[in-house]
Design a protein around this nucleic acid. Sequence first.
DNA 1: ATGACTCATTACATGAGA
Length: 265
Amino acid sequence: MRIATWNVNSLRARLERTLNYLREHQVDVLALQETKVADKSFPAEPFEALGYQVAHFGLDQWNGVALVSRVGLTAVRTAFDGQPAFAKPGQPPKLEARAIGADCGGVTVWSLYVPHGRAQADPHMAYKLAFLRALAADAARRLSAQPSARVALVGDFNVAPLDTDVWDPAAFEGLTHTSAAERQAFAALAEAGFREVSREHLPGTHLYTQWDYQALRFPRNEGMRIDFAYCSPALADAVASVRIIRDERKGKGPSDHVPVELEIA
DNA sequence: ATGACTCATTACATGAGA
């Protein structure tokens, strides 16, 4: 079984690319992030025409996560237990569309879009850290209830865990993605017993999954590695290989992120 | 060329992203 994760940065702007990707890569389960579409406008039909079931959670033009599966799609959840809400200034806290989970062919797959953080002093950063901590706590609880479960927590984590996951660590100093607090929150999932299998299979440095649209970042290969796949031990043991589909950043109208694929034995 | 940001919005400038 092949499971892929991809921050598409608007599904409607990337619909043909996404469908072509499914056709060409024989993906069984695709976890999408940043669909940037409300549920009522989600384009389900073209996926169904290719033989996939879809589950989407989108409230408005922000965030939005989906699961696309041709190996079953049941027990859909649109938040994990304890997932924090975010309060915009002067407004009550609101749960955002940043997590969707379902059972797909014997694997519980979660498509996750971790908050960006915006800046170290921004309330969004505290939200980001709380989101990762709560995700780790919920994942740990469920793993301890069922140690043999096959669970994949995949998506855009918005954290570069190592200095070699960005082209120039100095450029991120004092900003987001590389701070000790963010890296510790990312590591909480490993402490919960999950294994980040993309690093296990692709230990090389400067293997990026995102390149900013600005400043010739892609042609200069100045990117970030921020899209990951944390797997429960039972599933991690079954991962045969991992691929970063760098070619998806090329051509007309790419997302700033590329897919990461897991081949499950 | 892998090439000088892009997306969505009761849009035409702004917020958000990374």
